[in-house]
Design a protein around this nucleic acid. Structure first.
Lengths: 148, 148
DNA sequence: ATAGAGCTTCCAGTGACTGGAAGGTCAAGC
DNA sequence: GCTTGACCTTCCAGTCACTGGAAGCTCTAT
């Protein structure tokens, strides 16, 4: 199976597959004589695993750990559960931060007439308002919501 | 006021102030003879505006628009409101995506015994499970939750 | 006079990609 | 057998919003 076929079979784009190989998430597959990557069904299976993990918001680093947990037949299910719940906590923290922002802005917008006049409580709040909306999230990938 | 004082007065770090200047969000302030940046109280006011906007999750590009709306005394409040509500929709979309991920993972974790045995429904789901958890969010800054 | 805090510029790295250039390979149709 | 075009290869650059750090200059206090 070449990379294009592996991509459509797994739902991970060819570009991303190469990227995951480059950063060491997956091993280099064997090559055809022409130098094309050649994927086994096990490798495609792993790519599908990766796509599902990614869809649940796991980072590449976390996926490395997940793959290790997957292949370690002797690890306890509590190891996996702990790992998952740590991630859930992080997701929920970010979620709450986004919700707080949305709510603050929504409340502000509700008090704005939204007509042709310039007077606007949203701008006024930004200009001289109270302090922030949210407990902020933290994540390496997004410094914006980063730091402790 | 030098950059350190402007930073503590506004809550935007000196590093970020320089960055915002570099990317054109704010104008270059005047300089002292020694070459130090010198901020007026209007400029510090603008930095506070920026910090509040950032705390509501606006991107640098969006903040450029917000600053324009702020300084345009003739724009209608409906312009601001529309801008804000578009952002609210985006925040809520991302929020729902995170919530869907968290819920999926939480449910999965609930069915996991979390004991010393290796059998684990979380890993099994990733390995051969159903499709994704979420309507995905989109944002330039975070390709991970990006694309249409 | 000197120490050290704070300022300056500039460069590099972060995470998870995406886009594109330049060039090699493969399968199908003529 | 040749051409076409879809697909593969590598490599480099850009995205976003920062952060860290080096090298060197300035200011303030002792």
């Amino acid at each position: 199976m070449n990379i294009g076929q592996a991509a459509s079979a797994s739902g991970v784009s060819a570009k991303m597959i190469r990227y995951y190989e480059q950063v060491g998430l997956i091993a280099s597959p064997s090559r055809t004589e022409a130098g094309y990557r050649d994927y086994s069904s096990d490798e495609v299976h792993m790519l599908r695993f990766i796509r599902r993990a990614r869809d649940l918001g796991f980072s590449v680093e976390q996926m490395t750990s997940l793959l290790a947990l997957w292949s370690d037949r002797s690890r306890a299910s509590s190891d996996v559960k702990r790992f998952a719940m740590t991630h859930v906590a992080e997701l929920e923290r970010k979620m709450r931060a986004l919700r707080a922002m949305a709510e603050t802005l929504r409340h502000l917008a509700k008090t704005c007439h939204g007509d042709e006049r310039p007077n606007c409580p949203i701008i006024e709040e930004l200009s001289s308002g109270h302090e922030a909306a949210a407990p902020k999230p933290r994540r390496a990938a997004s410094r914006r919501y980063g730091a402790h």
